[in-house]
Design a protein around this nucleic acid. Structure first.
Lengths: 249, 249
DNA sequence: TAGTGGTCTAGACCACAGG
DNA sequence: CTGTGGTCTAGACCACTAA
């Protein structure tokens, strides 16, 4: 009850005061980031957590529900509370808004074309808030939906967050799960900026289309659960058979 | 306490049971739809609502917080709970994801080019789930950001939900607020489908660009708070100085 | 100062999953 | 059956706003 490893986070010094449930939520989040509980693992029950933090069960509940809204944990009645995991099947479409025009539940595939450690180009420096001399690993991929090339992707990963990823020989096509399981970088949110551009000759070769065809250019900045910018990604998407789909409310 | 106008909604017959707070939330939502409280008006306090519905204050609180998440009401500590309103300033950007590339907080303007009652075209019939012979009002607008034409819009509104809107002489450029205040149709969510296309000669004239320039084509289906499809909208957007911006989490 | 929503607690009971 | 999360209650106190 006393001297628990959870205690030190709470009881702030009355300045910049935060409600208890926010302090609890933040403590739990930090423990997850620090890998006290791993992705997929169960947290202690509400009752147990309430003891550890010396708060009521209701306060823990409010904290856990907040983390559920943020998709940091998932809860199942009668079972428990679990650290969210980017499993291949589960979250494949969460950050993949490109849909085939006709209905098609096929999963997108990815074909890795090159991996290279290099100096960060200017736009990656800006997007990822790097220093001029920082290095990045550059991945080039081609993605396939319904047996057709649908987009090309150029992905920049800061060396500091993904050390030696360029030496890996086993980079899978479910990247976000790979980031989480191998580099402890859990993708939490993305900011996508969409433009329309004309296909260059290189684009045309890559996607088996004609130069001058219209393409969607999606620039993505990816943030981790800790709020760090961990990925900058440029995707060029055919939009003749596909569309970028989004719901606003 | 008994025989209140709120009572009849609750106490379901144990089949298809819903938790109390969901029943309360739904009842409040229905009362808002039925204009028992108008947009911008204050609801009774939690304590009063708890009396009316014969539930505890905590249950009402949970219902109101749910409606807050759904942006159906807004709450201000020390003041009260209010029916959300599409005021010009407040929600102007909520459903307007097109941003100028450089930072610019200018509000978009709209120039209404034509209003016409006509037979619904096939794609509007499909998008709005209309019958073949239903009529729609078709609006054509041109939108302006930073003193430049940025997009053209073609908007289809079902006659049944917007009777005689084509006869109005005072259609403002803040359409969603107009829908709410004049036709009791509150926009609740939109589904946007984005493609890249080449500007036609007409597009080029409309936006003062060249034919063949790449444009974003955004097809939007708009749903009201009651879940009815109330608007189908095709927007063609320049993307040389602008981009469609979206956050996923 | 009065009234509102926001936080926190304690405890009861229910619904669900799994051994 | 046990333990989990889900609902509901009752009441105390705090923080904010406006008259």
């Amino acid at each position: 009850m006393s001297n628990s490893m959870f205690d030190h986070k709470l009881s702030s010094p009355s300045l910049d005061f935060q409600p208890l449930y926010l302090q609890v939520a933040d403590s739990i989040k930090q423990l997850i980031v620090k890998r006290h509980w791993l992705p997929g693992e169960a947290l202690p029950s509400e009752f147990r957590l309430a003891e550890e933090f010396n708060v009521s069960q209701g306060t823990v509940r409010k904290a856990l529900n907040l983390l559920t809204d943020n998709k940091i944990v998932t809860r199942r009645q009668g079972v428990g509370t679990f650290v969210s995991e980017h499993t291949s099947q589960d979250a494949l479409f969460r950050f993949f808004p490109l849909q085939a025009d006709g209905k098609s539940d096929n999963s997108p595939k990815a074909e890795l074309l090159s991996v290279e450690l290099c100096a960060a180009p200017a736009e990656a420096i800006k997007a990822l808030q790097l220093n001029k001399k920082d290095k990045v690993t550059k991945l080039v991929r081609r993605r396939i939906l319904d047996n057709e090339f649908c987009m090309s992707e150029t992905i920049y990963l800061p060396q500091s967050y993904f050390p030696d990823i360029h030496k890996s020989s086993d980079i899978p096509h479910t990247l976000y799960h790979y980031y989480q399981s191998k580099f402890n970088q859990t993708v939490h949110k993305t900011q996508d900026s969409i433009k329309a551009v004309l296909a260059t000759i290189d684009d045309a070769k890559m996607l088996a289309i004609k130069a001058g065809d219209p393409l969607l250019l999606v620039s993505r900045i990816t943030e981790s659960i800790e709020g760090k910018r961990i990925e900058y990604r440029l995707s060029k998407c055919r939009s003749d058979h596909y569309h970028y789909q989004i719901e606003l409310d």
